[in-house]
Design a protein around this nucleic acid. Sequence first.
DNA 1: CCTGAGGAGACGTCTAGACAACTAGATACG
DNA 2: CGTATCTAGTTGTCTAGACGTCTCCTCAGG
Lengths: 254, 254
Amino acid sequence: MVEVFMTETPAAPAMLDRGRGIALWHQIASAIERDIIRGHWTPGARLPTEATFTERFGVNRHTVRRAMESLEQRGMIRVEQGRGSFVAEDVLEYPLGSRTRFSENILRQKKEPQGRILGITTIAAEGAIAAALGLRRGRPVLRVERLGMANGTPIVIGTHHFPLPRFEAMPASLAQNASITVALAACGVRDYQRVRTRITARMPTADEATLLHQARIRPLILAEAINADAEGRPVDFTLSCYASGRVQIVVEGE
Amino acid sequence: MVEVFMTETPAAPAMLDRGRGIALWHQIASAIERDIIRGHWTPGARLPTEATFTERFGVNRHTVRRAMESLEQRGMIRVEQGRGSFVAEDVLEYPLGSRTRFSENILRQKKEPQGRILGITTIAAEGAIAAALGLRRGRPVLRVERLGMANGTPIVIGTHHFPLPRFEAMPASLAQNASITVALAACGVRDYQRVRTRITARMPTADEATLLHQARIRPLILAEAINADAEGRPVDFTLSCYASGRVQIVVEGE
DNA sequence: CCTGAGGAGACGTCTAGACAACTAGATACG
DNA sequence: CGTATCTAGTTGTCTAGACGTCTCCTCAGG
């Protein structure tokens, strides 16, 4: 996770009004909230430590902890033992339906979708991949690893599998536009639909945690999905890893 | 409010497992929760004091306070400075619509409606009463004060005003059945509808607080309503006081 | 170069005391 | 009999210290 330390000083100790009927912890919470709303710290940014706030506000550490607790209770910040406190980030709602499209999902929530191709390799389809795509084991498939982002914030790592040679033109398209939908169109698949999605969760690898800008202790949401073309032929078998702290899967009735 | 002190002892200090990785405050909160769920304390009952729990569990008062705070956060209990902690009570949803009927509202939420007539007097209609009922000032009206309950718990004090002599048979009916709807039917009004409802809030008098089993610091929700018969003639002008901690008015579009 | 251990930083828990603020009940006075 | 005051009970706030637990980074050894 990208952690930002702002240099501007937030609310000064002078702001605290002892004996005015408003608890110190409440004043401190309000001051921190004001700075968050004012943009001193952006979503995801790490807040100063308890010790720092203790010094700044000139109060006991437990008083600061009481203030932080109230902010966390309101969903404004996130406190993690051993790591620090962070400004809460918006949780993205990610609907999974028959016509799931990454860019559309992101645009619908007024965010800018971006994609970055992490790697393209050709592998032999085995096990679940072959089964899902209806291929004989050993047949070649194009494996595309893609990082999906919303407003520059990593959201999902998608590992796609496309049968070859049908989709051999994919790499050329992806080189110009990191959109799976556009690349599929370039290969003659102008429309496709979700056949099935399976959702589970697991802990991320170090690389996945780094790519998704999340703590290694934060689980991933995994979605295993099959997409088919208009004729019902499987075109894509995808394994997606979502940053669980930042994405919430919404499964609607189909 | 009726406050009940159970004689049975809840979770004993022996239940606490120090050094087992589960925080003491969490164990205490779970023990209290278990006793609430088990029925040791009924909704509305006052819980033992912080000092009592401190003794029972053999821990510091702040540890107990941390446990109580977590229970309050989950809506399981209600903590009031200077008074004590109470088991939270279900909040009754009370819809106000064109066909508001006390008994139907209560039954719809699977509770047993009860009524108790507090008093019946004849007064001269003045001010708002005369205006609302379309009467000349000074005309006699029957004033009926009624306590509405759900499962024996007081919900509302309703002060009804019925024009005389049209409703002179009301007392006889109410003597047998404390139902306003039944009494109106006995006087020939088989159906009626809400004309208008005005909602506001105020602090209760000592008597009202006692009747509604609530603290004097807890405000009342007031509803001022006019009901009319099928011909549109006003039949009832009602002032209702609802226990705000136990009732939530739901106003639907008409 | 990779892995493990150690140390430093940061939050979590528990104890303890003191005083503030609120509430309820009892008592006294008009 | 009603009102005001006082006292005791109960929760709220703030301070303070000590130690536990988690995380991350650095360094040393294989």
